[in-house]
């Protein structure tokens, strides 16, 4: 690694940061490294093999789970983005500070509440509502916890917009709908993308909520990895993690470029 540091960075600071980076990345590369181990364990590297990747491809069950996971992620992110954008517009349109803050607080409850509580309460909700635990319940939960994130990413873009832009558009003859489609949406597009993207990654990554509301017979990758891991080490998981790591990196690069283009300073950590 090459560190480009200013004069102010002392050697100690450099060492410290390098150590942190190594510790943060070591487990990930550890996993990837052993995914090529023909030995079948995460110690003693016997020899190079792609067997684990091959058996990953042959695993029909896993393939279905991957498809489920992506279907849930895409659909939930899409719906959450639509609902969230309109939610943000609604919050933006409130004139009274009080109302704005109340709705925002309600919005943020799901973001601050621990996953276990979300999972448990959704479980009660779906049971009472008679919704079968499976694809539908997982999808609804994912939509539910993604909406507030979309709102939080879109709202700053709306607030950043000069209010006179809306007046100007009306002044030039635009109807409410035209104001929305020709001025507001183009303006907040980066926020919408960021929101969609965040929703996508939250969904892909969620374990706890899904674990609560998924029934028998339906599983997402996180839940599957959990049950595999509880049974012990299997280098299939390593191979899977390499694939997921690469996929995550691609998403991050896309997100990074979206951000660079839009200058949103809303870079966030995932749960």
């Amino acid at each position: 690694m090459v560190f480009n540091m200013e004069r102010r960075t002392t050697p100690f600071a450099k060492m410290y940061l390098i150590a942190i980076f190594i510790i943060l990345y070591a487990p990930i590369f550890f996993l990837i490294f052993y995914s090529f181990n023909s030995g079948g364990t995460m110690s003693h590297f016997k020899g190079f093999t792609l067997d684990w990747y091959r058996s990953l491809l042959d695993d029909k069950r896993l393939l279905i789970i991957v498809l489920n996971t992506f279907a849930i992620a895409l659909i939930s992110a899409l719906i959450a983005t639509i609902v969230g954008v309109f939610g943000a517009l609604a919050i933006y349109s409130f004139k009274k500070r009080q109302t704005k803050n109340t709705v925002l607080s309600l919005n943020n409850i799901l973001i601050v509440s621990p996953d276990v509580i979300m999972g448990a309460s959704f479980l009660i909700l779906f049971t009472i509502a008679g919704i079968h635990l499976g694809f539908m319940s997982v999808l609804l939960s994912h939509i539910a916890f993604s909406i507030p994130i979309v709102v939080l990413l879109v709202l700053p873009k709306l607030n950043e917009m000069q209010p006179s832009l809306i007046d100007a558009a009306k002044d030039l003859g635009a109807t409410e709908w035209q104001v929305l489609t020709r001025v507001i949406f183009p303006y907040i597009t980066p926020g919408i993308f960021a929101g969609f993207f965040m929703a996508l990654t939250y969904s892909l990554d969620d374990f706890a909520v899904t674990f609560f509301v998924t029934g028998n017979g339906f599983s997402t990758l996180s839940v599957e990895i959990y049950s595999l891991a509880r049974r012990g080490i299997s280098l299939n998981i390593n191979a899977l993690s390499t694939v997921l790591f690469l996929f995550t990196m691609i998403l991050i690069v896309i997100y990074y470029f979206l951000q660079q283009r839009s200058h949103v300073k809303t870079m966030g950590v995932r749960k």
């Binding site: 943060l24 550890f30 995460m42 110690s43 003693h44 997921l244 790591f245 995550t248 995932r270 749960k271």
Partner: peptide
Amino acid sequence: IIVPSWINLLLKAYAFIGIFGKYG
């Protein structure tokens, strides 16, 4: 620094099962 937080939590936990294991 943030990128590792984007890697699936389960995978990181799983990695530590290997790392902290008997032969890690």
